[in-house]
Amino acid sequence: MAKEQLDRTTLDLFAEDRRPGRPKTNPLSRDEQLRINKRNQLRRDKNNGLRRVELKINAEAVDALNKLAEQRNISRSELIEQMLLAHLHTQQD
């Protein structure tokens, strides 16, 4: 029986073929890598004095924040922080 390159129905014929793709460079699974990276990110944030705050706002407000943050060349998170601090400072005066 001839081995046809496009025929993938007979898997045993292609068991030795190397499939194209990115070579594995880390012995950990992708899920474990993500879990470790997230833990490290949370530690870095904590060391930098950052605390996590989550909120839900409508898409129109998010679009406006994104546009303003892009104009100011800062992240949306930085923009929200600046706006909150400015509002809090005006409330104290």
Results as ranks from 00 to 15, higher is better:
1 M>Q: 08
1 M>F: 07
2 A>F: 08
2 A>T: 10
3 K>M: 01
4 E>F: 13
6 L>H: 14
7 D>E: 08
7 D>S: 07
8 R>L: 15
8 R>M: 13
8 R>E: 13
9 T>L: 15
9 T>V: 14
11 L>M: 03
11 L>K: 01
12 D>I: 02
12 D>R: 04
12 D>C: 01
13 L>V: 00
13 L>Y: 12
13 L>S: 04
14 F>S: 12
14 F>L: 14
15 A>P: 00
15 A>V: 09
16 E>F: 02
16 E>A: 15
17 D>P: 06
17 D>Y: 04
19 R>K: 14
19 R>P: 08
20 P>Y: 11
20 P>D: 04
20 P>W: 14
21 G>A: 02
22 R>K: 11
23 P>D: 00
23 P>T: 00
24 K>M: 00
24 K>D: 04
24 K>T: 09
25 T>Y: 14
25 T>R: 06
27 P>Q: 05
27 P>R: 09
28 L>D: 02
28 L>P: 05
28 L>Q: 07
29 S>L: 04
30 R>E: 03
30 R>K: 11
31 D>Q: 13
31 D>R: 15
31 D>K: 14
32 E>R: 13
32 E>S: 05
32 E>Q: 14
32 E>W: 11
33 Q>D: 00
33 Q>V: 03
34 L>C: 11
35 R>F: 10
36 I>H: 01
38 K>F: 00
38 K>A: 10
39 R>K: 14
40 N>W: 13
40 N>P: 10
42 L>E: 01
44 R>K: 11
44 R>M: 04
45 D>N: 07
45 D>E: 04
49 G>N: 07
49 G>C: 01
50 L>D: 02
50 L>T: 06
51 R>M: 09
52 R>D: 01
54 E>H: 08
55 L>M: 15
57 I>E: 07
57 I>F: 05
58 N>D: 07
58 N>V: 03
59 A>R: 13
59 A>P: 09
59 A>N: 12
59 A>K: 15
60 E>S: 13
60 E>W: 05
61 A>Y: 02
61 A>Q: 09
63 D>E: 10
63 D>R: 07
65 L>W: 06
65 L>A: 00
66 N>E: 13
66 N>F: 06
66 N>H: 12
67 K>L: 08
67 K>S: 04
68 L>D: 05
68 L>R: 14
68 L>N: 05
68 L>K: 15
69 A>S: 09
69 A>C: 02
70 E>H: 12
70 E>R: 13
71 Q>D: 14
72 R>H: 11
72 R>K: 15
75 S>N: 00
75 S>A: 02
76 R>A: 05
76 R>F: 01
77 S>A: 03
77 S>G: 05
79 L>G: 02
79 L>H: 06
80 I>L: 07
80 I>F: 02
80 I>G: 03
86 A>P: 01
86 A>Q: 09
87 H>R: 13
88 L>H: 00
88 L>M: 07
88 L>Q: 01
90 T>R: 13
91 Q>S: 11
92 Q>L: 15
92 Q>W: 11
92 Q>I: 15
93 D>R: 10
